[in-house]
Design a binder for these strands. Structure first.
Lengths: 231, 231
DNA sequence: TCAAAAGTGTTTGCAATACACCCATGC
DNA sequence: GCATGGGTGTATTGCAAACACTTTTGA
């Protein structure tokens, strides 16, 4: 395909930046890339890029994530559009921020064409963002915290089969606060979105936890009935 | 100022569309303009326009509202960015939607340069929007419904001094459902965001209602203390 | 005196919270 | 047998919801 083809023309004053969250080792993480070029060469930044004339913003976010991390079929949601006139040093670029959720175990990382490296970074560790990426990150994390209380997201961050403790750890690390085990289980099970499996953890030196999976049909039904939950 | 001045250069692939809500005669209304030019000439559409290189999106929304309606110092909030490739017929334009709240009594309307007319239209009456303005409107109304339950907005839609019944009517017309008078008063007063005045309605042929005003200091204090409310 | 809206408390049920011990497993 | 996390129930509290009559005012 030629570069002059309209479908490949880029819109150079509009970019997409993705805040990709993952969960590993009981910790919430964010995906960062090491920038290949100036401005901000060698700094760890949010993955992003420009959009094409032929694609929507959602398309662009999906494409950019595939480029940076092989990531496909993930939870994706628009967060906010950032427009300070000096947010990008070289010229006026307005950026649309996306929030994405990825299970790190399912997706190997590879740097895209504009990066020399990619990594998962713990959210609670300090990050020295370039540009206005701190602001973008803060807003995305905030939105994630709201979402996790009102929508059954978070399952995207876990393996298909998971224990209730894993799920609780995920909630706690997103919200940054601890919750009561019994009360959490009561609530989450009362929503009937989880199916208990006849499978248990293996190779642990303590009682093995029962595994569950998310029942998206049951959830869809609840939603269609106008059900609203609050975790 | 010359048109060649950088501060007046427009970014022609990025627009702002405003969904401006007002409240009059116990009804939620939306501000519409009659388009002067094609595409969509003579149709009633959401007010909007292109942004300048020198301004943020928020700036642009404020400017565009002043141009269409003399409106100043109003509640303004970004909603979502719309990017279907064919959403605007002439060329690729991505649009950032804003939600604004205005007290119609405080602001006389005047058509801006791109409109032949402006009006307030009842939200519950059918509107035949051009382009993707229906989608934009739906999303903004949805966001307003969420906001009104978790933030003390809505006061911008009322006169400075208002009765509890007025406030309740506003809530009901935003949410599109009725609420219990006693319960509503209990909740709203328990938040201590309202100051009762020693003033009463005048010229009504029934018992005069007490007037209240919003206490933004008290609210700020509550917020700083991490208080979260849900109406 | 009538019409029209303002104003006012109590009861009930549900949902959130707080809280502590026994169970299964691998080493 | 011990260390480690898994798993479970009840009592209390606070909040939301339902609900009807009296008061004030102007016409």
């Amino acid at each position: 395909m030629e570069l002059t083809n309209v479908s490949k023309q880029i819109i150079k004053n509009l970019s997409v930046d993705c805040v990709v969250f993952g969960f590993e080792n009981f910790e919430l993480e964010v995906l960062l890339i090491k920038r290949k070029l100036n401005p901000g060469k060698d700094s760890w930044a949010l993955p992003g890029g420009f959009i094409l004339k032929s694609e929507t913003l959602d398309d662009a976010a999906v494409r950019l994530l595939e480029e940076t991390s092989n990531v496909k079929n993930i939870y994706l949601e628009q967060v906010h559009t950032f427009s300070k006139t000096d947010r990008f040093p070289l010229r006026r670029v307005i950026s649309v921020a996306y929030l994405a959720l990825v299970n790190p175990e399912k997706h190997s990382l590879k740097p895209g064409i504009d990066a020399t490296d990619v990594k998962w970074q713990k959210v609670k560790d300090p990050i020295d963002f370039p540009f206005d990426h701190q602001e973008i990150f803060d807003r995305a994390l905030n939105q994630l915290r709201k979402r996790v209380r009102t929508k059954p997201i978070g399952f995207e961050l876990l393996p298909e089969k998971f224990s209730l403790t894993q799920l609780q750890n995920l909630y706690e690390s997103i919200l940054g606060e601890e919750v009561d085990k019994r009360n959490y289980r009561k609530r989450i099970l009362s929503l009937k979105m989880l199916v208990p499996l006849n499978e248990y953890q293996k190779g642990v030196s303590h009682r093995a936890a029962r595994l569950y999976k998310f029942d998206s049909k049951a959830f869809k039904k609840l939603k269609d009935e106008g059900f609203n939950f609050q975790l």
